[in-house]
Amino acid sequence: MVQEFIDSWPLFANTYLAGWAIAVLLSCVGWMVIARDQIFIGAAVSQASTLGIAVALFLSSALTGHDFSWINTGWFTAAMAVCFSIAAALLTNFGGQTGRLSREAITGWVFLVSSSFAVVLLYHTPIGMKEIQERLSSSIIGADQGEIIFYVCLSLITIAGMMFTRRAWILLAMDPPMAEAVGLRLWRWELSWSLWLGLIVGLSIRSGGTLYTFGCLVLPPLVANQVCKEVSKLIIVSPLIGLVFSIVGFMVANYYDLPPAQITIALLSTLLLIVWLGRRMVAF
């Protein structure tokens, strides 16, 4: 299996590297989603990012023949994905604190609006529809070397930032009133969190698709939470699990000729079940 994987390296190196970098990047921030009990936010933000891609493709299709060549570039699509996911992260984090809509309700609304409009917009544009279906079915499309370097740098910045400010993040996740009382400006931290989450998810969707992005965001920290005694350990263990299982997942997928994103997420889901059952049995 390993030899076959090594043989496939020259052909799929960029796809593998992009997938691993995304897995590390997402699982670095996923622990906050878990600690704040906002798992569904990951799905909603991923879906909003897909809507951003759909809007970009729709504009590209609608403005064909006009002098807007920049609309057809990959960077415009990426920018739209990031903008929509940031908007969704801001809406789900800041909305629902007043009025009759809870945060969960707004998260659900974002998910439903994004899912429906992404398809409605592109239903009569076959190429765009194919693109969206690829995102939804989570094909790991890969990336060029510049993007891979960007993902790796983003991962390193995220890890360093999380390690340096981990106490503040943990306190924000655990006890916002206490955090505010000791001088942390909550809205600034919430804004930073929304922007970073939106940026990371928006960029990851482009190369990884919805399932892989959502799965890598929540599954590694959920597994880590079963084995770690402290929240601060999650920050280290979660990206490690993300990296190891994306490597194993890609090897298995290559050997059995299966889709790598689905295999990785299936393995992580199974691991979560095993670890959870193991803990239950030990407790019993």
Binding site: M174, K229, V231
Partner: peptide, 25 residues
């Protein structure tokens, strides 16, 4: 400051050591 209640989700594991150390923010 000791708030009225802590909003930490019970599904998140933390030790007394980590919890109390957070006060040093």
């Amino acid at each position: 400051f000791v708030p009225h209640r802590c909003v930490l989700s019970p599904t998140i594991s933390t030790t007394v050591r980590e919890f109390v150390s957070l006060g040093l923010i």
